[in-house]
Each structure stands twice: as structure tokens, then as C-alpha cells.
Design a protein around this nucleic acid. Sequence first.
DNA 1: TAGGTGACATCAC
DNA 2: CGTGATGCCACCT
Length: 114
Amino acid sequence: MSDIYARIFKVVQQIPAGRVCNYGTIARFIGSPRGSRLVGWAMNNSHTCDDYIPAHRVVNRVGMLSGKHHFPGENLMQQLLENEGIVVIDDQIQDFEKHFWDPMQELPEDFCSE
DNA sequence: TAGGTGACATCAC
DNA sequence: CGTGATGCCACCT
């Protein structure tokens, strides 16, 4: 597994329940400001990681469940989020800004340097 | 080796 | 303010 994956998974795993984050922010935090697509790609391959990756807490910049179709079932992603207290309507997270979790602010500066 | 793809983001019109 | 086009990085065929 590439080191960048380790960083992505590591950061995603730090997202607390009831919080969400977007691809761009994570991409910047791990050192690939333009690699937002890599984060999504990593989520798609999150199953390759032995640890559990709460990929449902990672959405696009507007808080839309762009990747719900990649989860098993019809609306598992939405169910998981709602189960954590997040209101989701029509694949759109309500009050996204309030639930937003910023790794730059919540994690130590050197977290990505490990 | 080269070309195409993707759970995005951003700029231009 | 909405839609379209381009850039990005790593991976796969």
C-alpha cells in the first residue's frame, strides 16, 4: 500500500462519529492539495485496508453522498450517517458546515508527517 | 509504454 | 447564478 493511502486512511479513521469531512480538505492535509480525486479513489479501495474505514463520513465539498452507490445496499451510507446523528435528505447532508470536521484544526500539525 | 478512469475541485463562460 | 470544461494524482488495463 502506498504511503499516501496510509495517510488517507489514518486521517479518515480520526473522523469522530457524527462528523463528516470532504475530499479536498483531506487531500490538502495529507500533502496532495490537488489530489482530491485520490482520496475518493482511496475510499473506493478502502476495503484493501485491514482496518475499518468510515468512508461514509467522507463526502464531496457540498456534503452530498456522491459515493453512496459504492456502498452495498440501497442507502447504507445514508443509514450509517443518520445512525450517527447526521440528518441526510436526498443524499444531501443537512447542516453540513455544522457537522464538518477539519483535520487541519482537529489533528496535530505533524500528523501527516509521520 | 501509453491511454483511460475515478466516491473531486476549481476556473471560465 | 448554472452549466461546461480542465487539472490533478495514483491505479488499472
